[in-house]
Design a protein around this nucleic acid. Structure first.
Lengths: 233, 233
DNA sequence: CGCGAAGTTCTTGTATACAAGCACCTGTCG
DNA sequence: CGACAGGTGCTTGTATACAAGAACTTCGCG
């Protein structure tokens, strides 16, 4: 029934660019420039920016400009708290019989993670699918949508952390541990493994923050920096 | 720095009308009609509807129409799971010393709840503020924003339930129990009281669903009903 | 040189015009 | 009577025009 609209395409494209840091935190956006480069009018671009603003990924200052949000440590912590609460709770809501199809998906996903030599982008996609499928096991897969929408700042911080150096091998091992505990029916062990995993992800962030403070927000009253205006031409 | 925009006013107004059931689930909306009745152009109305659609409170069918979402039992259950996970987790993140200002706010809030003879609308506002302040005690007050955005379907279902009959007295007593356990430092008791409270709220919903099934969504492929078109006039 | 005020040019917010499509109504034909 | 074809008026999607404001540049003045 639904026809495809360009707004959805543009929204997803911009969102992806923000989350992958292709659009850097703090970068100035312009509805006109984006519209021109995407070969559409301001309308769908503007509506996409409004949606991104509601997610907290973009800040719009009326009559001043739009900017990619700097990574806000407070929002990162909030997202961390949210996902930990939800993912741990879902472990205690696991049914007796796990859905074999989802379990198989998880196994395939894990195999790919272990194959090593994987692109960083690839790892993030697998990681995202892995955690979403874990939620599906407890029948609350749709809740992941809400969590995913709220953890944009955390994802960007994580990307900053992994850009630096380390291979995701440690995280892959933790995924394995969580998975084995779940299929083995050992909920307490799964709980511990999950908490360890999520907090390891979180602890990485403080390290990178000391390394690249300019990408993080300092306080709530951030002053946007306007691009220089070219006068002559 | 930010100037007031009419879009925000309209968005908040429409959102409030949807959550209070002033705009009934399933009701047809029209950007043109709303714009006319609000004395603005389609633009701010349309942008507000887009935001509400992202929250799941409105469904927009391109070239067909926009409708207030019917209450989706699946989304109600998701919101219930989400809020229970978050609110219970926040109890275990309470600090040693509670913020006296927030505690005082909670006490004043509770006193008003107990004053009895309160408007239903008033009770909902107090209830909302009460739970948000509980989250503030653990330092995760901002997470409540995410929970609040995701629990629109649950709130509407709850309103349907309380429209019917009961006084909120039982809920007020549960609030009292939770509060006393928290200020007494008894986390396990607070945990039990909170879980009992949240599930009591949830159990009310199944009752009303049997009573007024037309306000609930039946399946995902809901067919929108267009208003009759008046031809002659 | 310091400083203030006006001007320029960008920004987003709002209003409006046009395009595309769906659903209903109605007339017509078998 | 039934069914199909076309008209009609609504719907939202997109493009464009105009308005209001903020920040930077620059000019003028002391």
């Amino acid at each position: 029934m639904n026809g495809r609209t360009s707004r959805r395409d543009i929204y997803l494209k911009l969102r992806h660019m923000v989350l992958t840091l292709e659009l850097a935190p703090g970068a100035a956006l312009s509805e006109n420039e984006l519209a021109a480069s995407l070969a559409v009018s301001r309308t769908p671009v503007r509506e996409s920016l409004i949606l991104l603003a509601q997610e907290g990924l973009v800040q719009v200052f009326p009559k001043v400009g739009s900017f990619v949000s700097r990574v806000d440590p407070a929002q990162v912590a909030d997202a961390q708290f949210l996902r930990e609460a939800v993912e741990l709770a879902s472990l205690h809501a696991l049914p007796e019989r796990l859905d074999p199809a989802v379990v198989e998906d998880l196994r395939v996903n894990l195999d790919r993670q272990k194959r090593g030599a994987l692109d960083l982008e690839e790892f993030f996609e697998l990681d995202e699918a892995f955690h979403q499928n874990l939620m599906r096991l407890s029948g609350h897969g749709n809740v992941w949508t809400t969590v995913a929408a709220a953890k944009g700042h955390l994802d960007r911080a994580r990307r900053l952390g992994l850009h630096e150096n380390v291979s995701p091998a440690a995280f892959v091992a933790q995924h394995h541990e969580i998975f084995e505990a779940i299929v083995g029916g050992d909920v307490p062990r799964a709980h511990t493994a999950m908490r360890t995993h999520l907090r390891a992800v979180f602890s990485d962030i403080e390290r990178i923050r000391a390394h690249s403070p300019e990408l993080f927000a300092t306080d709530a009253s951030s002053v946007p920096v306007r691009r220089n205006i070219v006068v002559w031409e």
